[in-house]
């Protein structure tokens, strides 16, 4: 039932403004001398009518909508500052950012696939690890950052490790990490998104972010995916 109500903060704002208009306006004298606290049914219904229910909104409306980069940079900087005040150490901070990203990732996955497959007669799911990794490299990156990631590689040493490389991650463009925190990669947020997508598609993995600067791209970041054993075993079985 919570969805039927408008956003609590908005409803407070609009209700109070509505009742204050009631008090000031000479035409509505009915409430003038009575108790003002009780909102009339119309006053409650009004904001609901202005603001459509989430089930009334088409999901494709914001498909090509873009978010202002400066607004996002500001929001993300606040997120990092807020988180930093509540953690002890870099590892903890990265874990928190990862958790926040995870919440985004579950939604990105479902919405993104709905937008591409929702109108199809036989919507498909990805079953193969490689196609899932390609999906993350291109589709997810496009949905979240507006462009595909720059590279995807398999680790030479470990068969269960894959790396997605972004030469200039959008979320770090306006972040300069202090020297004493040089290990910190704010792309842990992105790692969380990737982890959620992999989890959702039943390819559980541990995903971390690392700074791997090179001379042309000082911001270059590697998202390291370490897949769980069960995933690789299943891949083996599927090959047969």
């Amino acid at each position: 039932m919570a969805y039927a109500q408008p956003h609590p903060r908005l409803s407070v704002v609009s209700n109070s403004s509505h009742s204050s208009i009631d008090h000031l306006s000479p035409t509505t004298s009915s409430t003038r001398f009575s108790l003002p606290a009780v909102p009339t049914p119309q006053a409650v219904a009004k904001p609901a009518a202005n603001r459509p229910n989430i089930y009334d909104r088409p999901l494709n409306k914001t498909r090509n909508a873009e978010v202002s980069a400066s607004a996002f940079a500001f929001l993300f900087s606040e997120i990092v500052q807020y988180t930093q005040k509540r953690v002890s150490g870099i590892n903890d901070l990265e874990r928190q950012l990862n958790t926040l990203g995870y919440r985004i990732g579950t939604r990105v996955l479902e919405l993104m696939v709905w937008r591409s497959e929702g109108s199809s007669k036989t919507p498909k799911r990805e079953l193969k690890l490689l196609s899932v990794l390609m999906l993350i490299h291109t589709q997810v990156w496009k949905a979240v950052f507006g462009k595909a990631a720059d590279a995807i590689e398999q680790s030479v040493e470990n068969a269960d490790e894959y790396m997605i490389i972004d030469n200039d991650p959008a979320i770090e463009r306006h972040i300069s990490v202090p020297k004493d925190m040089s290990q910190l990669s704010c792309s842990s947020f992105t790692a969380g998104i990737v982890e959620a997508v992999l989890d959702g598609l039943t390819f559980p993995a541990r995903v971390t972010a690392h700074n791997t600067p090179i001379t042309q791209f000082p911001n270059r970041t590697t998202i390291l995916i370490k897949l769980e054993k069960s995933v690789l075993e299943r891949e083996e079985l599927l090959k047969k």
Partner: peptide
């Protein structure tokens, strides 16, 4: 089921919904 999926996507993009919250919306 396709329509239920669309409704579910709309539910889950709501930031107040988590993977374990029961869907109690009357509109849903």
């Amino acid at each position: 089921l396709m329509e239920v999926w669309e409704l579910y996507v709309k539910t889950m993009v709501n930031p107040f919904h988590t993977a374990h919250t029961a869907i109690r919306s009357g509109v849903f």
